[in-house]
Amino acid sequence: MLLFSGVGKSCLLLQFTDKRFQPVHDLTIGVEFGARMITIDGKQIKLQIWDTAGQEAFRSITRSYYRGAAGALLVYDITRRDTFNHLTTWLEDARQHSNSNMVIMLIGNKSDLESRREVKKEEGEAFAREHGLVFMETSAKTAANVEEAFINTAKEIYEKIQEGVFDINNEANGIKIGPQHGGAGSGGGAPGAGGAPPGGCC
């Protein structure tokens, strides 16, 4: 996942992989990983999720990881307008350094904090529409939509694989066939799309 410090990427990931919420999280250094098996279309797929650091300092490093992603979650924090304002930069960065077919989902996290909301849901929807992304608001705390966000991204990647958009024999796009190894790309491609869903984070 790619994005900013403190928007809740790592929390989202933890919620998805471990089904728990941990409000205090160490700053992500470079990239950290999470993995979960899911079933799409009757097939067991290992989603290997690359949780990239949101801090600006790690930006040059996290960029090297985009290339391997089949999908990405671009996460902002609905209670912080600045994270939303930075989306364009992140999106450009992600598109520039990744596979052009990478599936990107826009996530407005912390939907449980309605009272502190700074970014309207409609704004997120509009941004997603404009840039051809799928949009969803989630809460890592209440787990609302977390499952859906990851699994929908994985499904979209899966469909792209079925359509032949992704060359599954080329590991550079984060998809690996095999009993075990996940590829890169959050979203998840065939067995394992590890990935750097861009997203902001805890």
Binding site: G30, F33, Q48, I61, S64, Y65, R67, G68, H181, G194
Partner: peptide, 23 residues
């Protein structure tokens, strides 16, 4: 071994390191 190594995130760290190293 490979399965266990992968389960402990060994492979994915190695892969990420490889990406950095290549770049």
């Amino acid at each position: 071994y490979e399965t266990l190594f992968d389960d402990c995130e060994g492979l994915v760290h190695l892969e990420a390191l490889e990406m950095l190293s290549k770049q």
